[in-house]
């Protein structure tokens, strides 16, 4: 049985003039130890997907469908019970590291607090001194220089790279079964980005966590993931093995995205471009969401929405791949 099963997930936002639907029929199985790159442009619904798994959507959002975590439907749980699954079950690293820590508590207090919660849930009694040592060891794991001093600092005294590592260390202290990382490197510098990616991969291997890595950058997803999920207009357009998708994209959107990446120098010729812009949720096209930009679109694409078809071991939402 997969660790996480998402079935027919739909998310709506209530706005003054009705509701806006932002996720449409999401189906996803996450097996233990999977690393899945969730790639989409802004407004594709990728952060909404992450937030609905940990049920941290804003109050005006409604999620329908099922998210089974080890057999328990998270969406059916009362809010008070959901707390028991966050942190130790599913941990989410948010996009902006500066907002992830409490600004008026020292790093040490926050990390030790996370550990206390873990042992409380396991009904284990652990002396305070060993908690400190465990925190120190994890901070060394995430290669934070000079961890003793950093533990006595407040978040505002640290750099973005340091805070992001502390949040990752907190995630590891809790030993979650699923780690969701929402653009964990976009607030960081290029050279730090590679360090954090390598760290997450290394620790995922070591602790056999499942990883959902949300990013807008296909090249980052390529470096991180074994499986790739392409989101567009709130729908899964393609899902499959990362190498396969990158080598032979099956959906015209994935194909266009890969073709439009800069290669070589401008003297060698113009870049391929996908015409137009990603759709707005307030103004989605009829039929296939990608039809206004698709070079292969035909009559049926404008009338009917394609399903998510099985195609060469992948899932693809395109009539061209439906035998």
């Amino acid at each position: 049985m997969p660790q996480l099963e998402i079935r027919d997930l739909e998310v709506y936002y209530k706005v003054p003039f009705g509701t806006i639907k932002t996720l449409f029929g999401i189906q996803l199985d996450v097996e233990k130890g999977d690393s899945i790159g969730i790639v989409g442009e802004s407004g594709s619904g990728k952060s909404t997907l992450g937030l609905s798994i940990v049920r941290l959507l804003p109050p005006n959002a409604i999620a329908r469908g099922h998210i089974f975590f080890n057999g328990t439907d998270l969406l059916a749980l009362p809010a008070s019970k959901m707390k028991d699954y966050r942190g130790t079950g599913i941990f989410m690293i948010m996009q902006d590291p500066f907002n992830s820590l409490n600004p008026v508590k020292k790093v040490r207090e926050q990390l030790i607090e996370a550990l206390r919660i873990k042992y409380l849930r396991r009904n284990e009694r652990v002396p305070e001194e060993s908690l400190y040592d465990e925190v120190l060891k994890k901070l060394k794991d995430v290669k934070l220089p000079d961890p003793e001093t950093i533990m006595d600092r407040y978040p505002h005294q640290l750099s973005g790279g340091q805070i992001q590592r502390i949040v990752i260390a907190m995630g590891l202290l809790l030993e979650p079964s699923i780690l969701i990382a929402d653009e964990p490197t976009s607030a960081l510098d290029v050279s730090v980005q590679a360090q954090i990616i390598a760290l997450i991969k290394e620790l995922q291997d070591k602790y056999k966590m499942s990883l959902l890595f949300i990013t807008h950058d296909l090249s980052v997803a390529y470096a991180v993931s074994e499986k790739l999920l392409i989101l567009y207009g709130g729908r899964i357009l393609e899902f499959g093995n990362t190498e396969d998708v990158m080598n032979s994209p099956a959906h015209p959107y994935t194909e266009g995205l890969l073709k439009s990446f800069p290669r070589g120098n401008y003297r060698d010729g113009k870049l391929y471009t996908l015409q137009g812009a990603p759709p707005l949720f307030t103004d989605l096209p009829n039929g296939c969401v990608f039809n206004p930009r698709c070079p292969y679109a035909f009559d049926r694409c404008y009338q009917e929405e394609p399903g998510l078809y099985d195609y060469m071991g992948r899932k693809v939402r395109c009539f061209l791949r439906h035998e």
Partner: peptide, 17 residues
């Protein structure tokens, strides 16, 4: 150390600027 479509194995730089 920079992710690109050619480079699956990243080799991060050590240390900070």
């Amino acid at each position: 150390s920079v992710p690109s479509l050619r480079n699956k194995r990243l080799e991060p730089m050590v240390g900070e600027p």
